[in-house]
């Protein structure tokens, strides 16, 4: 299988602060890849750099072998990358239907768009009752469904998902991740997922990266990561909590 996305030594700055420090990663066609990392690690920054909302200071970003670093985000979207951003970012005053249809803005295949709309409503039947309501009236979980559905309506070849579990109840998280798996399995959408919540993200992934303060400190196939003591302890919380300072020290010692 070929690599859909490749990042090589990407660095991104906010002013003079470097948030991403030489990140290299790749996403294989048809897979789900997860970047795990705690709050402030730089996960959102990586996704924004890929989708063009931020320009990298250094490094290369190849999507289907073409360089996309520095392109405007609308151009990147037209190339086939959909970004479901952190905090959902729905269009608050547009109806749920118009929100979903905005995903299909660049598409001309009306019949296919209508079929995809039915698919999305099949996955998230609760949205059917709110189709003509403004998205601002939806709950957080429903807005997350709109954001995911809207991204799918773009018919992307790569989907970037920024913490889809954030602020949702365990039951909703299960529901939403089940749909993410179906978008990947049934529809063949390649996924790059970033999550603090490794418990739910890692098990559905094919491959994972661990990000700490802007650096990739560990990577591997799911099963290898799931078996790793460090991952079990610090990201899955299986052996109980360690103190924060302790954790940094240990992370450095074992991973670098």
């Amino acid at each position: 299988m070929s690599d859909v996305l490749t990042l090589s030594n990407v660095e991104t700055m906010y002013g003079r602060v470097m948030a991403i420090r030489g990140v290299s990663l790749k996403v294989t066609e048809g897979s789900i890849v997860t970047i795990m990392g705690s709050n402030g690690a730089g996960k959102t920054t990586i996704l924004k750099t890929i989708s063009g909302a931020l320009d990298p200071f250094k490094g290369r970003i190849a999507f289907e072998r073409a360089e996309i670093a520095g392109l405007d985000p609308d151009v990147v979207a037209r190339r086939g990358i959909a970004h479901s951003p952190e905090g959902r970012e729905v269009f608050p005053l547009l109806s749920v239907r118009d929100n979903l249809m905005m995903g299909a803005y660049t598409r001309r295949d009306r019949d296919e768009v209508a079929r995809d709309m039915e698919k999305v409503l099949g996955w998230f039947p609760v949205l059917r009752d709110f189709l003509e309501k403004s998205a601002i009236y939806l709950s957080g979980g429903q807005q997350q469904m709109v954001a995911l559905g809207r991204a799918f309506m773009q018919r992307p070849r790569l989907m970037l998902l920024d913490e889809p579990s954030l602020g949702l109840s365990p039951r909703l998280i299960q529901e939403i991740f089940a749909i993410i798996c179906r978008m990947n399995g049934d529809e063949g959408v390649t996924m790059l997922l970033v999550e603090q919540n490794a418990n739910v993200a890692l098990p559905v992934s094919d491959f994972g990266y661990v990000l700490e303060t802007g650096r990739i400190v560990m990577e591997g196939p799911r099963d290898v990561l799931l078996a790793s003591d460090d991952i079990r302890e610090f990201y899955l919380g299986i052996k109980g909590e360690a103190a924060r300072g302790d954790r940094r020290w240990k992370v450095k010692k074992t991973w670098r």
Binding site: A53, L94, Y105
Partner: peptide
């Protein structure tokens, strides 16, 4: 509709491929 969308959330409009 795209103009309405970009007036409500510019970044999300960019992500939809709208030439903001």
């Amino acid at each position: 509709a795209a103009m309405l969308a970009l007036s409500q959330n510019q970044l999300a409009a960019f992500y939809m491929g709208i030439p903001v």
